[in-house]
Design a protein around this nucleic acid. Structure first.
Lengths: 185, 185, 185, 185
DNA sequence: TATGAATGAGGCTTCATTCAT
DNA sequence: AATGAATGAAGCCTCATTCAT
């Protein structure tokens, strides 16, 4: 006798909202780091806090999701561009620098992740694999010391993040030096 | 508008209490970083919060005092030991690593300081001077690239702090690599 | 960094809660003046402090809201009743006396406001206008000296507040005397 | 074998300290009202807080002592000058105005005192007596209504204090009006 | 008797998270 | 599913008063 059958958007709406929140979060995190209030994110996403929490049950979850997103972009770039170049690792680090320089939150996340001993998400695993690949190629080319490992690159990236986050000098120079440190001889 | 009395413990010498607080703070900061409550520091020092605030009017003041203390130790070591060695810079970085590895708070402070554009305290200035000296000597010995500056070392230290703080690998290896990066050729 | 959950009481309509808080605040302020803790107000309103702060972001904001409320009542009375009477000013002062005698907070607010040189809210401005009107009428009737101004009435009210707040005698008598002082001759 | 017999000042020193404290307190209270920290008073008196507390066991006690001092001055003036004049009450109020205008703390104290139902100190009692005397003289001269009592003057003074403390207009005008209100007719 | 270091109970405000609507 | 009001545990800092020296 009532309730017209109009349906077919709930799922879509939900998805859309999730995306809005994530986008807003990324923008805010990029600008200010992770020290942002949940309510602020919700406001920026033009969504209620409740909705935010529906999609990301925890502050931490949101942060991770935002980081994961960026990591995905990073992975894509690494695969598409760095693997196709002779100086792949340099390209890789350079790109990471660019990203971190534009995304403060990411520089916070990277450090944390580098040190984390947790299961590692898919993306991060893949990223590590690419890094390994880049190292191997460099070694084959003779531009990277044979004893260099992914762990070494991780450390360098961790340091890079700190350098950028604290504006502690010219990060390109930092990359140049560390890269030089990875060179044979 | 008033405060009922209470009993507790005899009053010690003022300086002694200041020292107690500082010591307690340093211990806690070393273990957990600066994210420690003032009341926790007071409790660890077996002192009322009021006493803590008497000696360090602000959370920040306490943190700075603790950091200054460590910086002083660092400076002393740098002057006494590093300046007297041919591989001074390596010694210097190695020692910093040891210190940061045992003092999480310090690793947080160092990063912040590296990026800070503030006046710089006496100790830090002196530390920079020693670093410069070490670089010059290394350059004279031919073990450091002629274009290396104090800023470069600062960046490396900033990165080192992050690596250690996040347990992102073997920090000695990080030093080895970056030092290698500073080598000529 | 997080807050464990807890249970308590269903959420009511927002406006209703705002009103509850305001009401509780007014009651407490009326009884004890403004020297009341925020948590006490919250408790009286059967609301969490957070809720209180949601509606009134600052202690001062709450105080002002409470005062504004009373001022509104005052203005209404002044317009409706005092302007319709020959002895308007007497009625006005008498009513203020009644109000202040029942609301200690208000007597504190009035004094402060009298001395304040700030922009003046709408209500207060309107109140001043009514006072001016009442003075003029009294002057027309010949029961108020021609040199009397709103500033004079303000002073008298300021004094009235003090007299009432400190229970320094019979405030009706105070009004009688000052009113007499405003009489010609 | 030791301890030379030099004595004969402790008492004097103590008295001197008491005076210093009181003087410092009065100066500070006059300027800022009673919202001054005990330690600030002690510092201004160049004395330890302990000494301050030895002489004035309580914040309140200090405040009262300071007020008592001023009241004494007031009483002296009232007796010496006001009682010797035909327009004594006017002189009296005028002088109180001058005093309060220069001593914020006093304006706070007066109000409180006016409302207080406590035993009343000697000075205050004497002051009341003088006020009564002044009233009676005025009544004899025919410049004060026969129904005026000391309580009336108290109220007026209480109001005067508020007017001055809040800079709520021209207090001389306030006196003029209230004095006029006490006039016969 | 003088000193001032020590004490700790508050007081204001913030913010991650929950939950009634 | 969305909303945003509600919650209350912290956390920083102040200051009247006490008490060992």
């Amino acid at each position: 006798m009532s309730t017209p059958p109009s349906r077919r958007k709930p799922r879509t709406d939900a998805e859309r909202n999730r995306a809005r929140v994530l986008e807003a979060a990324r923008a805010l995190f990029a600008e200010q780091g992770y020290d942002v209030q949940m309510s602020e994110v919700a406001r920026a996403a033009e969504v209620g806090v409740g909705t935010l929490y529906r999609h990301f049950p925890t502050r931490q979850a949101l942060i991770e999701a935002a980081a994961e997103h960026r990591s995905g972009e990073l992975l894509a770039f690494a695969r598409e561009t760095c693997l196709a170049t002779p100086d792949g690792l340099a390209r890789f680090l350079g790109h990471i620098g660019e990203v971190l320089a534009r995304d403060r939150g990411m520089s916070e996340a990277i450090e944390t992740a580098m040190g984390s001993t947790e299961p590692q998400g898919e993306t991060r695993t893949a990223l590590q694999a690419v890094a390994g690949e880049l190292i191997e190629r460099g070694q084959a080319e003779g531009v990277i010391r044979p004893d260099v490992t992914v762990a070494d690159v991780n450390m360098i990236v961790c340091g890079l993040a700190a350098v950028i986050r604290n504006a502690a000098g010219d990060w390109r120079r930092y990359i140049e030096i560390t890269l030089n440190g990875l060179h044979p001889r």
